[in-house]
Design a protein around this nucleic acid. Structure first.
Lengths: 246, 246
DNA sequence: TTTTGTGGTTGACGTGGATCAACGGTGTCC
DNA sequence: GGACACCGTTGATCCACGTCAACCACAAAA
């Protein structure tokens, strides 16, 4: 939407060993000793304002990013103007893995709110993961997890109906908020109906109607972006009962 | 479909340095010196008969696989019986990357024809990629490429219409056959209409109708699984012209 | 040769979600 | 405070694709 973006690099050096996101982020499961080495790896932090991009499709690939605060969406766009949100990312998650293959980013990463990331220069990461076994293994796991996640989305897009897709989305968000110490039942979505729709392969009107339907059925209470899940079991059942999907 | 499968491990030691698939496979771009080290890495070959599985969801993850001959599909299945083909793989492509994250495979890999793979024990791969920089980098690229590919499929499933999806599929197949030294215009599909449909998020009847439509329009000639592309430009145009897709 | 099975094609019909359109709520910038 | 922009909701209508069903082609078995 906006043109190029003023980049803010805070002088603050990141520190994995001090960070309270270790359990969600790249360093997960690494020994204290290895963790200290990671502090060398992670470069400066960078702040990204709402609606601004961390990187855009076509940018040369130099680093991956760990989200320290805030949240992002990634999207791909076709030359004819159509676009598709490929994911929403929260704190501790890693952005930029798409860039390794062609040494150029293949999607846009845009902040959904004012956010901050840790910059992990990719060359350094490769170098250090030759020395630190735990880092190498974690990094592979992070990439593999992304592949598995994408398969899940393909499943959703290829074989679920509108309400099933939204139910799956809400349960997924709930689980991720829970992992971050927030309530499983009550949370604030940072993305618009249009963005949810793009991600789920639906039009925004369909998303809105599905929300209304869930509210009628007492499954959730919806007030704009504020969601309260009233009947998680009901949402799960929506997913399991083969409802004649496409 | 079938129950568990007799596994055939041929005594033949694989050899990357001798293999004519180097340019498509994991070793791509590696120096001759590094290539020789790869020969230590790759274990036995394994033959998989048509319709049999290389691994199934839930199997413990031990190795990744490079396809030496033949082709595969991967699919995920939901507890309610629905399933979704997440990809078709050809010679030189790598299978099993989904298993790293949870140390368990998350999808099924099934041979579309009698096939053969090179078994790459994952522990050894990690070990060796700590020593061989080129290997590490190539491996990361392979994983990243998989992520980018998945984003493309998400785009297709989320925002293209039936005929666009099939056109994209045919062009993709054509390109991959070309890369393997086959004709870009004429090839034999190894998968059924139902499998194509599952991959593209369509019913088999819709796939069949789209094929018929393409034939009427002189874009391709279709005889069962044998495809001849008569007008590649026409197929590409189908993709670009915003045809009011969903 | 007939039989059986699997995969593919085609037609008639139904429907879930897209499209088009109007309107209501909320936040932000003067 | 008022005006504007953006986002969300809801209704009416349409159409692409799913569903159901019949039939055909080819291959393997008998």
């Amino acid at each position: 939407m906006k043109a190029a973006v003023p980049i803010t690099v805070s002088g603050l050096k990141a520190s994995c060993s001090q960070c309270n996101l270790v359990e969600l982020c790249l360093p997960f499961g690494m020994s204290e000793h290895d963790l200290n080495r990671l502090d060398e790896l992670v470069g400066a932090r960078r702040k990204i304002k709402r609606q601004q991009s961390l990187y855009r499709a076509g940018d040369p690939f130099e680093a991956i990013y760990a989200i320290r605060a805030g949240s992002f969406k990634t999207d791909v766009l076709l030359e004819d103007g159509r676009d598709q949100v490929t994911g929403f990312q929260m704190t501790g998650e890693i952005l930029g893995l798409d860039g390794i293959s062609a040494e150029t980013h293949s999607c846009n990463a845009i902040a959904l709110e004012d956010s901050e990331v840790c910059v992990i220069p990719y060359g350094k990461l490769e170098e250090m993961s030759r020395e630190v076994e735990g880092l190498q293994h974690q990094f592979h796991k992070v990439m593999s997890r992304e592949i598995v996640r994408d398969h899940g989305v393909m499943m959703l897009l290829g074989s679920m109906r509108a309400e099933e897709r939204l139910a799956a989305f809400l349960l997924n968000m709930s689980q991720r908020f829970t992992a971050r110490g927030f309530s499983p039942a009550e949370f604030h979505l940072r993305m618009t109906r249009d963005e949810i729709g793009s991600y789920l392969g639906l039009k925004l009107e369909t998303v809105s109607r599905a929300f209304s339907r869930f509210q009628e059925d007492g499954l959730v209470s919806v007030q704009q972006k504020h969601i309260r899940i009233l009947n998680a079991g009901g949402l799960k059942r929506l997913l399991q009962h083969q409802s004649g999907g496409r």
